[in-house]
Amino acid sequence: TYTWNTKEEAKQAFKELLKEKRVPSNASWEQAMKMIINDPRYSALAKLSEKKQAFNAYKVQTE
């Protein structure tokens, strides 16, 4: 089980997950979700809006 003390740690864990699963920077949210949804870190960020925000930040960083 994973635990995160801060929102920032949770966001980092979520981005690490995207990186580890090699989600391409041109992937849509739907494509990315299919690649990461079974990992416990997918739940790091509770709100869908937070997940999408972190995903978009990840995409910008990896382009």
Rank of each mutant, 00 (worst) to 15 (best):
T1S: 15
Y2H: 15
T3L: 11
T3E: 14
W4R: 04
W4F: 06
N5D: 12
T6G: 05
K7H: 13
K7S: 06
K7M: 08
K7I: 11
E8T: 08
E8W: 09
E9A: 05
E9G: 05
E9S: 05
E9T: 05
A10D: 03
A10T: 03
A10F: 03
K11C: 15
K11D: 13
K11H: 15
K11F: 15
Q12D: 11
A13S: 07
A13V: 10
A13Q: 05
K15S: 14
E16G: 09
L17I: 03
L17W: 01
L17E: 00
L18R: 00
L18D: 00
K19V: 15
K19Y: 14
K21V: 06
R22K: 11
R22S: 09
R22D: 11
V23P: 04
P24Q: 05
S25C: 13
S25T: 13
N26R: 07
N26A: 07
N26M: 06
A27M: 09
A27C: 11
A27I: 09
S28P: 08
S28G: 07
S28K: 07
W29A: 00
E30W: 09
E30H: 11
Q31C: 12
Q31S: 09
A32K: 00
A32Y: 02
M33T: 06
M33D: 05
M33A: 08
K34G: 10
M35E: 05
I36Q: 00
I36E: 00
I37S: 11
I37M: 13
I37T: 08
N38W: 07
N38F: 09
D39I: 01
D39E: 04
P40I: 11
P40N: 07
R41H: 01
Y42C: 03
Y42T: 02
A44V: 04
A44F: 04
L45K: 00
L45R: 00
L45M: 05
A46K: 12
K47L: 13
K47I: 07
E50M: 05
K51Y: 03
K51A: 04
K52T: 05
Q53G: 07
Q53Y: 09
A54C: 10
N56D: 12
A57W: 11
A57Q: 11
Y58D: 02
Y58P: 02
K59C: 11
K59E: 03
K59A: 08
K59F: 04
V60E: 10
Q61R: 07
Q61Y: 10
Q61S: 13
